[in-house]
Design a protein around this nucleic acid. Structure first.
Length: 626
DNA sequence: GGCGGGACCATTTTT
DNA sequence: TGGTCCCGCC
């Protein structure tokens, strides 16, 4: 079905045809917000075909960005360079590639995603006796709080009480030292991307002006997920209350408070921009029965936006809600199995099992697998895992950062897993020095002494070292690996190769779509590192997810387990008080509104030996007597 | 064999 | 907040 403004309802159409000035679209679950956002961007382009300014679409996940980019492309029939749909982090890397030299960053900076590498930087500070550091993990957490809240080193004293000034001074020094380490190594982590971009926009008016001239329209998806650091950047990009800022949000779906999201942010937006507000309460996903209990549940939250309209179901499907009580978790999981066994195998992918914690999910998964039901926990961010693809990955990383010892170390250890030969990083560096060649070439020369990697290493020297042609290198590497992988058809030898290969190509396609076929190596790597590598699911597989990862998704059959006090809401939330309970309630709201037909809610009277009452949310939804 | 006391457990994770 | 189990002591 083609997406046009004619298919929209009146509210959606008003939003999609919005032209100038600030607009806040309050979009409930299943309200077609992505369609509205997509049509709005296409509409702007069609109305101003001869203009040169760009439109920036900001999302909070890479997945959302890619999906929106695809839909816009379908609408406009071509890749329009005037539209950039990016995560805020990806957009910040753009700014830093262009202007980062003012802060001592080169455009080919690399991205650190692993906390271990970040802690290593703190340990370097310690080893060089620059700063006294006794708990690097704890300090890293504090640095991240500074990053997510957009706090500068010099602002820090205001956040500490007088008697804590000493720890304030330490953190100040660590923060500065850490930033310096990053710049010295030409590296950035997620937080510092936001930090340095904000610094540039704040302190260099010329750059801010240029960026604002290029991006005259800004559209933000899932604004409620914005943390303070991100909001500060948005404010620098869309400065006055006449700015063309188009924001889609739902204050009932703020569930990332621990990452700095806050219902207050929407209030701030309303105050800062005085936007016109359009509400989209129409829910095209959930059946009437589900919308009813969702409305009743969320009505118990006191800090919602005023005048928020209640959800209205526009789904044709007949909804079914079932509540089930069990004696303990084992029995509860048995009940879940009984539910899933009834569903034909080829419809299992329409099933989503949700729990508040991973602990419950892994118990359920183990039991399901025991009974021959394929079940996979769709987890947080994963990296490549197969030694073959990791070899390729570290090779091009080393090509981009030719002197990096840490990348060389990783490359050496990962090739050991392939050919069993231990290459010492010291020997590689020594060879490079003696023969006056790059470390990467020295590595290829030394690693090619083993039979299995010979072809790969020859290829590397020819394409990467001689011509810096990473595209050919990647393409032909996979040909080498396919052969190698076949030779060792024993799956344990090169585990997960096919998953990694699928992921690589999917991500690579997305990067080329957004950045063009001639994308440079450093941009390719930066985007690759910003993208999570999702697990490739088997067909006929039931998905198990936490509420947080299930956000934005939709399934015919949704099973929520563990709806008991201390589980959902969690023990911590109950202890913390009302603000946390409200966030838990929003989580529960998100969970139940994933269902487009069947919603199964279960709880046990006992978890891990402890007697628990049914979740208060069940009574609030009106499906259980209080 | 009976008892008192202490230990046990306790979240989510994008980029 | 909670029930249960195990240890040590009398």
């Amino acid at each position: 079905m083609s997406l046009t403004v004619d298919t929209l309802n009146e509210n959606q159409r008003q939003a999609a045809e919005w032209l100038d000035g600030p607009l806040l679209v309050l979009a409930g679950p299943g309200s077609g917000k992505t369609a509205v956002l997509t049509l709005r961007i296409a509409n702007l382009i069609r109305n101003n075909p001869d203009e040169t300014y760009r439109i920036l679409g900001v999302t909070f996940t890479v997945k959302a960005a890619n999906e929106m980019q695809k839909r816009i492309q379908e609408l406009l029939g071509e890749n329009n360079r005037r539209i950039q749909v990016r995560t805020i982090h990806s957009f910040c890397t753009d700014i830093l590639r262009q202007h980062g030299s003012h802060l001592g960053l080169r455009p080919d900076f690399s991205v650190i995603t692993d906390d271990k590498d970040r802690i290593a930087l703190l340990k370097e500070l310690k080893d060089q006796n620059i700063i006294e550091i006794d708990d690097p993990e704890d300090l890293l957490k504090k640095i991240d709080i500074m990053f997510t809240h957009g706090i500068n080193a010099e602002d820090l004293p205001a956040h500490f009480k007088e008697e804590q000034q000493e720890s304030c001074l330490i953190l100040q020094a660590v923060f500065k030292g850490y930033l310096q380490k990053l710049t010295e190594g030409n590296q950035l982590d997620f937080g510092s991307m936001l930090y340095f971009s904000r610094k540039l926009l704040e302190t260099m008016p010329r750059i801010a002006r240029q960026v604002k001239t290029v991006y005259r329209y800004i559209c933000v998806d899932e604004f409620q997920d914005t943390n303070l650091a991100q909001y500060k950047i948005l404010k620098l990009l869309a400065e006055s209350n006449t700015a063309n800022l188009f924001v889609v949000a739902d204050d009932d779906q703020v569930i990332f408070q621990w990452n700095g999201a806050d219902p207050k942010r929407l209030e701030a937006l309303k105050k800062d921009y005085l936007p016109k507000i359009i509400q989209l309460p129409e829910n095209y996903r959930c059946p009437q029965e589900v919308v009813d209990i969702a409305n009743r549940l969320i009505a118990h939250n006191s800090n919602r936006l005023e005048a928020k309209e209640i959800g209205v179901s526009h789904s044709q499907k007949q909804g079914v809600i079932k509540i089930a009580e069990f004696s303990d978790l084992d029995a509860e999981v048995e009940g879940l199995i009984a539910e899933l066994e009834v569903i034909p195998k080829n419809q299992r992918e329409s099933c989503l099992v949700i729990a508040r914690s991973n602990k419950l999910l892994s118990q359920a998964q183990a039991a399901l697998k025991n009974r021959g039901i394929e079940a996979e926990i769709v987890n947080k961010h994963q990296d490549f895992t197969s030694s073959l693809v990791l070899t390729l990955y570290y090779s091009i990383k080393l090509a981009n950062a030719p002197d990096s010892r840490s990348i060389l170390n990783k490359l050496c250890s990962v090739t050991t897993l392939i050919n069993g030969i231990t290459l010492s990083a010291e020997d590689v560096v020594a060879k490079a020095n003696v023969e006056s060649i790059t470390i990467l070439r020295a590595f290829f020369l030394m690693a090619s002494e083993s039979e299995s990697l010979l072809d790969f290493c020859m290829l590397g020297q020819r394409t990467l070292c001689d011509f810096m042609d990473f595209k050919s290198f990647v393409l032909e590497s996979f040909q080498c690996f396919d052969i190698l992988n076949k030779q060792f058809s024993d799956d344990d030898f090169y585990p997960d190769y096919s998953d990694d290969k699928v992921n690589w190509h999917r991500i690579s396609d997305d990067i080329h779509r957004e950045h063009g076929e001639g994308v440079s190596l450093h941009v390719f790597l930066q985007e690759l590192d910003l993208t999570p590598k999702s697990k490739v699911l088997l067909k006929d597989c039931v998905r198990l997810q936490t509420v947080h990862t299930a956000k934005g998704m939709e399934f015919d059959n949704v099973f929520i387990i563990g709806l008991a006090e201390d589980q959902f809401p969690t023990y911590f939330a109950i202890k913390n008080g009302d603000k946390s309970i409200q966030e838990e309630r929003r989580s529960c709201f998100v969970a139940i509104t994933r269902s487009s037909r069947y919603l199964y809610l279960s709880y046990a009277k006992k978890y891990f030996g402890w007697a628990k009452k049914p979740s208060r949310f069940l009574t609030e939804m009106g499906v259980l007597d209080g």
